[in-house]
Design a protein around this nucleic acid. Sequence first.
DNA 1: GACCTAACGCGAGATGACTCGCGTTAGCGT
DNA 2: ACGCTAACGCGAGTCATCTCGCGTTAGGTC
Lengths: 238, 238
Amino acid sequence: MSTAQPPPGASRPGGRTARTRQAVLDAVFEELGEGGYAALTMEGVARRSGVHVATIYRRWRSVEGLVCELMADLSGGIPLPDTGTLRGDLRALARSIAAFYTEPRYCGLLEAVVSAAARQPEAADVLRQFFDQRLRLAGSMVPRAAARGELPEGADPDEVVAALGAPFYYRLLIARRPVDIRLADRAAEAAWVAARAGVFAPAAGTADGVRDGTDAVRDAAGSVRDASGSVGDTADPA
Amino acid sequence: MSTAQPPPGASRPGGRTARTRQAVLDAVFEELGEGGYAALTMEGVARRSGVHVATIYRRWRSVEGLVCELMADLSGGIPLPDTGTLRGDLRALARSIAAFYTEPRYCGLLEAVVSAAARQPEAADVLRQFFDQRLRLAGSMVPRAAARGELPEGADPDEVVAALGAPFYYRLLIARRPVDIRLADRAAEAAWVAARAGVFAPAAGTADGVRDGTDAVRDAAGSVRDASGSVGDTADPA
DNA sequence: GACCTAACGCGAGATGACTCGCGTTAGCGT
DNA sequence: ACGCTAACGCGAGTCATCTCGCGTTAGGTC
């Protein structure tokens, strides 16, 4: 978070520019901690950082821009677990994520980025790229596990890590409740069981190619398979 | 969506009031379809609906208010699948959700509600209550399955349904890509496998009480269990 | 150490979101 | 059919957000 790397084309990367940048981003982070995205205003950031409002507008254009750059700052160095087993890796990663989002400032940042992405296409790009990178990095645990024979062949690393992370974002953004360690362990366990069962293997289209260790896999297949083409219509399920 | 129920205390529920209400909410819905939440402005809604801006402000206060009422309108009548097996129910529900969010207007509504919740506590309440109700309704498939002996005892219905839904919201809000039927089938299969393995049983704290049909459940336990208390600290995992 | 200029501070001005008061319309009771 | 009043249309007014131009500061360069 403190790797204040100057923008590539900056003609004056040293001293003051970097200083104001850091002051502003720190202020954004603090503001997000108190009151979340709702309380994040340009005036507030200016007041807290001591940088003039016009300067902030010049460099970042909007609160969305601020939030994007703050998030992009986080992309350095994910500590990738390597416990020796996929199950251990998944649990360790899940607990790291839980610890991360226990911090209110990071919760606020998540809300802010998701909200920003809903308003500005550029913010959406930043968000997508950030999480794509995270998936790619964390996904390295999957081929390791496959090499150890822990998983059926062809498990998609992105899918496994996405399955691990999804419950956190559901909890925070949809259910709107805090994360806890029980959520982390359940998420890790669910991802592990599903991965082991071959749910995340390519397996062409529907999940009928699933191999799992249990019996009774084949019930219920007939009654829903005929609904294959129903995704296109606009039926209202709610 | 068309059950224009008048507000409880409304002293004049008929005719014009309901008409303008419907016109406005329809306009919001359409605006969300074109350009999403970014393009949702009071002026736009007023222009499209033919209702004056001041009137919309009077009744709904803000765009967040509009979005909340539109979402609350959706709460009527979730079609609950009942295919005879939990696996079939999960897949049917997942495909319904996929179909739902294939419609751009509902995607926009989701984005809008999540964004609104990040700004207004009341919107957050509406969002939470809405999804709580959805979980409660859809969760009925779980005790049915338990009664048929498809699941280990004590599986938490909310957890099962949340696990089913989470991948959709991850895909839409975080990965920022469209949902498809493959996602639906994978989500259903993952939720089913995990539920069957006992991941969503209460099982006191950590997930060590898991019973699954596979072997090798017990590797990896030692190396991460000691990290139990690490959620409280503010370590930065990203 | 002296020059050059990108970046910043500052205040005035423009833009758009939001509110208010009044006259009018139309649902609802009698 | 008549009157009552909640809800709406309308335009002016207010306020916060955002931009612009100029003078100043301080990095970078020779």
